[in-house]
Design a protein around this nucleic acid. Structure first.
Lengths: 157, 157
DNA sequence: ACAACATGTATTGTGCGCAATTTAATTTTG
DNA sequence: CAAAATTAAATTGCGCACAATACATGTTGT
């Protein structure tokens, strides 16, 4: 047969990424439970704490998520009283997301989250930055391929 | 205020991991569509191609997934004719998963998948191994913390 | 032997992700 | 300016993840 090594689970970089991502989300979960939000909701809040009134499209471009994911997520954040959804007055198609007072206030409690995570990762700041840099580069290469829908190896039909 | 930099999205290692994991899964999707399976289903098949007759519990330990995820996933693989689910004769609690003939045959078509992925990652084999090693170490530290349910920083109530 | 406990799987319910389609508003074009 | 094309959200449907619970089978201690 051909080379089975590439098919072996413990050789798969993608599986480690997948497991790492879920593992980190699991670490976040009890911390974010104190804020009554999930990890994807936390990511949205991070963006809004930087800049208010962002459109759903802009949120999607930052998080690589589409309206099918964001629309219900934002409705839950609105129900929770953290944000408000308002149609833009200049373009009725776009929905802009604004922090409600409760959402503004939540930022104070959020400071402890990334501090705890950095600590639990067991990484030095340099390792942390190095790993992030490598993964960002990988992400960009992957996304470039995905966007192009081009193939790398001939896709044996 | 405190240090806002840690709260900024582009400083978050976890987000890059989350985005990378989803990006790679997206790259897998069209390749696996040719095999009519999803990425988590592919992971199960990888294990079965190495060793047949694995229990659901053993699958869960390798993939860090529980029966709530695996039971319906395996039923879909069974419906697709790729595997069979049989209760162990020595312990009626245990369900063992066996490759059906169609599942055995699928392995041939699967060889192209990791080759394409390695290529598209744009990584040399050394970079690939280095990154995997770092992430594996991170995963183990994270999982150790998750398992202990211990805290790193005092969890401000 | 049998009650208490442990174990492996299944079920229920919630929240993502994402493809595909729909709807409404805006822009572009002939 | 009206028809066609584009764009932003929403909707629908399916498959994970995962907490919590239920249930059946095994094991242990007395």
């Amino acid at each position: 047969m051909e080379n089975d090594a590439l098919l072996r689970l413990d050789n798969q970089l993608c599986f480690v990424l997948y497991a790492c991502s879920r593992g980190l989300t699991k670490t976040y979960r009890p911390l974010l439970a104190k804020l009554d939000i999930t990890y994807p909701q936390y990511l949205v809040m991070l963006i809004l704490w930087e800049k208010d009134g962002v459109s759903i499209k802009a949120l999607g471009e930052k998080l690589y998520l589409d309206s099918g994911t964001l629309t219900p997520l934002l409705k839950r954040l609105e129900t929770a009283g953290l944000v408000e959804r308002r149609r833009s007055s200049t373009d009725e198609r776009v929905v802009q997301i604004y922090l409600a007072q409760k959402g503004v206030d939540l930022k104070k409690k959020a400071y402890a989250v990334p501090e705890t995570l950095l600590c639990r990762s067991g990484l030095t700041v340099d390792q942390f930055i190095g790993l992030k840099t490598e993964l960002t580069a990988l992400l960009e290469r992957i996304r470039a391929f995905d966007a192009a829908t081009s193939s790398c190896l001939p896709e044996q039909e």
